[in-house]
Design a binder for these strands. Structure first.
Lengths: 220, 220, 220, 220
DNA sequence: AATGAATGAGCTTTCATTCAT
DNA sequence: TATGAATGAAAGCTCATTCAT
């Protein structure tokens, strides 16, 4: 006789869990092997389902990848947008907060591998590139720019070139991610990410804050 | 008098030119599509030869790639090593020179695509990763470290942590390359590479030069 | 009522039958063309499937070949081992039985082509050679030797050199197989295999049986 | 200053030697690797010439192989034919002589590899098969048959079935060759070829000689 | 909803043969 | 006569996607 509880067939109980399990498996493998080299069969196996099942939930490999981005990265941008919209303090502190959140939710996380993957393979998958551009880069860029504009409007930042400064702020994140997922693992002398970010922020704020501010140089 | 019919031979014998032509085609395609996605048939076609011809000059795809690295990147490292060995002036100027040379010969060049390719795909091709590690990363790292040690020995630099500072100096080059070959092309607001490098150098020298020194922001 | 249009599905799902069908196709083609010259696409086509399907069931060409050997030859050795272990009569009769079984299950059969193939190509495929050595030759040799030792122990055979006599007993089988799959088909005057085997057995028993025995020429 | 003798350019002096050198290289490689697996480039290299040169002397791979057979095997058949035509003694001695000559000039020699190669690959190269059939097998068969007929005509042999006995006489040679070039090298307990041939001859003569003859059994 | 067998285009590599030099 | 660069048809194997069950 079987246990009277939990008699529902497993697949039924799991109906809602499937997409999560598949996405979790997908993110792992995409991060490990990149987009082109990840085999859908492996994703399915890691999620404990068959290849066909994967196609019930995701139209194809690209849609699966988009879903991974949508669940792992886009929400972080949304949160950052909210931070910018709702923050009440000094813009320098807002900037610090946004960078710190990025580090916690992406940089230090497995998800950073997805960011690196896009920089690595976007060229070969134009549709993915476009999707990522629209959903992540443009929104992220806009968010950072709006943060700068807020600072300028409140006279907390100098009248810098917003577009260019936006790139400068993105750069260290991009670098950390590239480092972590390519050269980094081979190197002995680690690039200490938090110290690096701090240095970068100091440098950036040096260019952003009105002249009267004095910033102590950070230890790299 | 020429024959009025199309007398073009089925092929032309160009033993000496072939390797160059093939390497040129290979570098173009590797940069455009990456290692895995580059088809040897396309390389051959672009060089104006057949698939088989390529194999007369390069044992296989990996060897072709190594040859590309050997001809396009390794010599730049060699030149930098010589610079470090032979330079007579202040170590800060040496540092500037090395960075500038890098920018001219790699960063601003198509070759930068190869550097980016390696960061993108090394994980999937361990033998290539090892080759690049040995021939480029280790040598490059050693070269930069020796430059720092020279500065310290001559009391031109402070007693910094050489290993870590080496990474910091590599980082902006890595970033420029990543930027240029992934996000960059999609962006409107360009990251101005020379300005970026200059900023980085200033920041680095700020940490390197003895406290008494006053450094005017340098134009790279 | 059947649909009057051609409703044949693009493919049919025959999981259980496939391995057999593929092995049957493989054995035919291996026997016809040898190992190196057999194209997996042809094997697949003969089995009525596509190239890819073959790889669902066999990891690669060598594994396919091993599977052919395992299903067609190895069991015959197993059966012979059992015969030797269980036989109760005179060792000369056991020897006759084993040779006769070999003829029925291998020599007279298509499978003999596999034996010939191995002698023909083992030199070019060391891994296959090792496999066949382990699974067939060593086991077969041991089986024949044990048969001889049984005869000697029971005083039914003379104290011959077991190792050498084992080779002698293998030789005619090898010859028949070589003959059948190379010179034989071209020849008009057939080598009558059964008569040949009988002659050989008589000769061998002449050397094996104690002097006092008188053996009537046996019909195998 | 150079030696005044031997000033002719090497290629001129070698003009006549070329075919020999190529044939020698070809026989080595055909024996080592078989027909299909032997690369003409390797043959050329071993002969110390270029691939193109090989094609000056031999139309293609098959013609090269035919030439190998013509120089290494056909003459032995010719010699045997002469023996049969000119021999003056007892036919049994003629038979022994022919077998012994075969052993010395083919069986014990590298050339035996060519015989084995044909049994191994004839099926895949019909034109070679036909050539070998005409030049070697048919002539060889005829030669052996004529030897038997001579014996019968001179009342030195019984009235046996010539066709079948011819096959029986070919068989041990075929077996030795197969053994030597496939299973043999793997086996510990060597099949002693000369003893094996002697046994076979005794057995054959037992069937050939008139009843009054008494033949001592040979030690296998 | 779930499965996994089946497909076939695509890619790297090999080598007999040709032919410009 | 001699060379060896160039060709291109194969062949083994992979994997995203489809679809009968």
């Amino acid at each position: 006789m079987e246990c009277p509880f939990d008699t529902k067939p497993r697949w039924e109980r799991r109906k809602d869990a499937r997409p999560h399990e598949l996405l979790a498996a997908a993110i792992d493998l995409f991060v490990e092997r990149g987009f082109a080299s990840t085999r859908l069969e492996d994703v399915a196996r890691r999620a404990g389902v068959s290849k066909g099942t994967l196609y019930l939930y995701f139209e194809n490999k690209e849609e699966l990848f988009k879903a991974v981005v949508r669940t792992s990265i886009v929400p972080v941008i949304g949160a950052a947008e909210s931070s910018v919209a709702e923050f009440e303090g000094h813009s320098a502190d807002l900037l610090r907060k946004v960078m710190q959140d990025w580090w916690e939710r992406i940089g230090a996380n497995k998800v950073s591998g997805i960011v690196k993957l896009v920089t690595a393979e976007a060229g070969n998958f134009p549709e993915l590139a476009k999707f990522y551009q629209d959903e992540v880069i443009n929104r992220g860029t806009r968010m950072i720019s709006s943060m700068l504009e807020r600072g300028i409007a409140r006279n907390e930042f100098r009248q810098v070139n917003v577009t260019q400064m936006t790139q400068v702020l993105i750069a260290p994140m991009l670098m950390l991610v590239t480092w972590k997922h390519s050269i980094g693992p081979c190197e002995r002398g680690e690039l200490e990410p938090l110290a690096f970010l701090a240095t970068f922020l100091d440098m950036a704020l040096h260019g952003l804050l009105p002249a009267t501010h004095v910033v102590a140089p950070a230890a790299v």
